[in-house]
Amino acid sequence: MSKKIVATTSLAGCFGCHMSLLDIDEKILDLIELVEFNKSPIDDIKVFTKQCDIGLIEGGCCNSENIHVLKDFRKHCNILVSVGECAIMGGLPALRNGIPIKECLDEAYLNGPSVRHNHKGIIPNDDELPMLLDRVYPCHEIVKIDYYLPGCPPRAELIWNALVALVTGDELKLPYEVVKFD
């Protein structure tokens, strides 16, 4: 049987979900026996080089680039999994929903005590910077998501067991301790 191919990305997330994946510790060595990694921040593959079986998404969408990456993942991954609260419902970054984005920018670049000499009132707006969205969107509002792994971050065992289940096709056991929030 050829190895299943996995891709991962971090959108508007804190990378904690990726760190939790690394918290499977020694099993990382088993993991690379089990699957092959394609596009992922942990390796140097920056664009999809083939169609993938499983895509793991950390974080929701807060800017135009997140949307672009998420759609690209949907296109290149047969199964897409929202990993963690940010991907599932926006998480901490979504605390900005309900506050006009202008107020957030003003606070960071104009009103803060250590930018008091920004006399020109510069707020970053270069063409190289993606457009901020009006609010932070959970992934399933942008593309179809097949599975959800709860937690902030989901525990290492949950991510591991879910990956094994997806690869082997065996049913995943979900005891309460594993799916409760924290």
């Binding site: 508007a12 997330g13 804190c14 990378f15 904690g16 979900c17 990726h18 760190m19 939790s20 807060c62 800017n63 680039e65 998480g91 901490l92 970054p93 605390l95 900005r96 506050i99 984005i101 107020e103 957030c104 920018l105 003003d106 606070e107 960071a108 803060g112 970053p124 270069d126 190289e128 910077l129 993606p130 901020l132 902030c152 971050p153």
Partner: peptide
């Protein structure tokens, strides 16, 4: 170029102060 913006300084306003140590760390899981 750093292309992400969160707005933390603004959206933490109004939260009870003792939440800060558990909220803020979610800026960075590393």
């Amino acid at each position: 170029h750093i292309v992400e913006f969160r707005g933390f300084e603004r959206f933490v306003q109004g939260r009870p102060y003792w939440e800060a140590p558990v909220l803020v760390q979610r800026l960075c899981g590393i």
